[in-house]
Design a protein around this nucleic acid. Structure first.
Lengths: 351, 351
DNA sequence: CTGTTAGCGCCTTCAT
DNA sequence: ATGAAGGCGCTAACAG
């Protein structure tokens, strides 16, 4: 392709690379900037000290070629990738997208990208996802809760990647836990109702088997009531995942019983909003005939004709805090760490 | 480490690998199974024909070692990864997690994993994300809408990865579009209201600049009304993203005007549910005093005391269909393809 | 501050 | 049906 038929020189190679649509590599940048590949690599990763002039030349070359580093090559060479594995139980429940939003916010502006997996609350699937994500040698793995299969736990402990277990802090984490005490949150719900003078308290819940945190809150609720010498006068649970529709139906079932009830604690806001809808449809005055309290502090609860009384669990903050801590140190520190993002009662108008 | 001090043999190496916690590689599997690495690779990828007996031996070795392929190495060698890049405008609006849920469902059972990015409706950020995701040489890139910066479009067209543009089908895609005609959906909303006998129709909307599809529906709505010789008698829009709270406030603003209104079309269900809340709080009878129609078919709309009349946009199906098509063929086909997942009116009780 | 030398673990191509 | 050789693009030592 050269005019004189001699061996291709560098600029010719470059030219060909561009014309052929071959993605430029470090080597191309290095040639253009007249430095070694290594130096280009250092500039890109901001490692070691580089002469200002050199850095400029390299950056100019990168710009000119539109060079984008090949992440697979980088990962292979360094045996660690810019991937953050994120394992969520579900995407149907809005709290997990919000957690993901926090994670994503913590990652924005960094070269790290989240790679996700969804377990559908199945620990066996979680285990497979852990294995499949570890195959990418991620910088960190984020999951929820402390329940894992034995093998999953071994994989997590054995790998050198950082591990964050989110949402809950009522147990000892492998590496890092970020969340709130659901047991305490349940107690706080009980105390709030007691403080407001309610004594005949019922419970409406969803699937505990999948959602251990909902169960922890239920237990805390019982303990909080016990502090005041009270206990639940009635309870009703669906086997389904939480949803507005299930909340509506399940409250109806609870009220169909013969217990005298003046307040209901719900397993979460989805269920509570559904409960509110039932009250609207059935002509039950809230909170005069029946008080309602939820958990999570979802936006929809605050948009009801009467804002829902609930407990704010800061999902976004949990995700973001986790990422911030994980990125602080790429190696797992000698001691585990627990970050309590807390909760707060939202004093709505329904309890 | 050997008893007799001789050179380490294969099984000793294997032993060391396991004890040292060194992750086993293809080479380890190959030695154990007494075949070449190549053969192991073929077995794993199910490529070429392999003697049954060999395959068994290899699989046994894989099992025994707990071998997990290094994805970075695979990606580098094949210059293509098992990553599906997914770029979403937002995670706050439930429709995008639902889209992601569909994508994830389509990916489950395959070795592909989604790597995500969120643009916040910013085309500049989308461009950066495209570049950053292409650096992983993904098998495909999924994004929403047809609006991209020129450079983003060039990157997408130039790369050989498959590209899906979701949600909308009112334009020509780069490779594949999956979604519905939002213009048609708007028309359908208008026709529904007209059929129901409403003639004084108002509109409540949110940020069109970010949400082009909402604008398309608005236009379709106008066209649908025009077919019946009608036009909007009033409209009110927030500059904010859609939300229940904004829907509530914006309907209040619309009704504060002096137009006679008997039905309101909302830009989506979030806004419509908020509108419903306003009606509840303000004592407006729905649909007798005021009819409401939304768009999306969210669960929350169906849990209202009166189920919301709305248009179902099947986000889950869109995501899943897109993945199915993308995985059918790893190379971009010569012609572009458009898949219409359609929509349907949900005949609720509010219009 | 910069360059040289070896791989990282796998897949592709070509043999056989 | 299987093996051998080479290289993907980058980073990690080590020099200097």
């Amino acid at each position: 392709m050269t005019d004189d038929g001699q061996t291709l020189d560098d600029s010719a190679l470059l030219h060909i690379a561009q014309v052929a649509g071959t993605t430029p590599t470090l080597a191309h940048v290095a040639r253009l900037a007249n430095v070694s590949e290594n130096t280009v690599s250092r500039v890109i990763r901001n490692k070691g000290s580089i002469a200002v002039e050199t850095r400029q030349r390299v950056n100019a070359a990168i710009e000119q070629l539109g060079y984008v580093p090949n992440r697979a090559a980088g990962s292979l060479a360094s045996s660690s990738s810019l991937i953050i594995g994120v394992i969520l139980p579900s995407l149907s429940n809005i709290v997990f997208p919000e957690l993901l939003r926090g994670i994503n916010a913590g990652l924005s502006g960094t070269p790290y990208r989240p790679m996700i997996g969804v377990t559908d609350y199945d620990l066996g699937i979680e285990q497979e996802l852990i294995s499949s994500l570890l195959a990418w040698q991620p910088a960190a793995l984020i999951t929820t809760g402390f329940e894992h299969t034995d093998q999953a736990r071994r994989m997590l402990e054995g790998s050198r990647v950082r591990v964050a277990e989110l949402m809950d802090i009522d147990n000892q984490p492998i590496d890092l836990a970020v969340g709130l005490s659901h047991c305490e949150a349940g107690r706080a719900m009980a105390r709030h109702l007691v403080r407001r003078g309610y004594t005949n308290i019922g419970y409406v819940g969803h699937d505990w088997i999948a959602d251990r945190r909902a169960y922890a809150r239920y237990q805390g609720l019982g303990e909080g009531l016990a502090e005041a010498g009270l206990s639940l006068v009635a309870e009703c649970r669906t086997e389904q995942p939480s949803s507005t529709l299930e909340g509506r139906k399940t409250l109806a079932r609870l009220l169909a019983g013969d217990a005298e009830i003046d307040a209901v604690a719900f397993s979460n806001d989805d269920m509570a909003v559904g409960g509110f809808m039932h009250c609207l449809a059935a002509g039950i005055a809230v909170p005069d005939d029946l008080a309602l309290i939820g958990f999570n502090g979802l936006e929809i609860g605050q948009a009801l004709p009467k804002p829902l009384t609930t407990v704010l669990s800061n999902r976004f903050a949990i995700g973001k805090a986790a990422v911030n801590v994980l990125l602080e140190d790429s190696k797992r520190p000698p001691e585990t760490r627990i970050i309590d993002t807390g909760f707060s009662i939202i004093e709505g108008a329904t309890a």
